[in-house]
Amino acid sequence: MDITLNPADLTHTIAFYTLALTSIVAALIVVTAKRIFRAAVALAVVLICGAGFYILLNYDFIAGVQLLVYVGGIVILIVFAVMLTSSLESIEEPPSLGRKALGLFSSLAFLATAVIAFSETKFPLSSISAEQPKDVAKAVGRKLLDYGAGGYVLPFEVISLLLLASVIGAIVVARNPKRKNEGSAT
């Protein structure tokens, strides 16, 4: 057992375990909370911790996008969905025992399988001398608009189409058919 006393490494390790503990506890709250709004707040905590993990892995740009899109967009959307479909007093019934057992069994089975699988596998780790691109944002931007080999310009365009389609789809699905004639934007 070697515990390195290099302060930078130490802070890194402490940050990792603190974030890991917080995110696991918050994730458990997400799946078990009886009040759905509390689950949404816990989800926000999990996602913020996720951004923390990305910063620990040195992908600061992805962490920023995670905060911007997940916490700033998706969580707020989910909160809206909660506000529109339930009230403060609505408390969710706990799942039936059979369902609970099924859920526990499948999640534990997955956990066990995955842990065994990757403890048996030898991953091709990159050499220690390998350097991460210094400016992740720049590297990602170049790669996304690169149309040569290994470029991602086509998936990028497809994603933008997907987003457009989902926006239009959402408007069509959510609009109230009884109020078709009103042209207001709200």
Binding site: A27, V30, E92, P95, G103, S106, S107, L108, L111, A114
Partner: peptide, 19 residues
């Protein structure tokens, strides 16, 4: 993996669709 399996549990047991 732990986070993923917690998610699996939630998908299978949550009653509320938002959950």
């Amino acid at each position: 993996t732990i986070l993923f399996s917690i998610g699996i549990y939630g998908v299978l047991t949550r009653r509320n669709a938002v959950g």
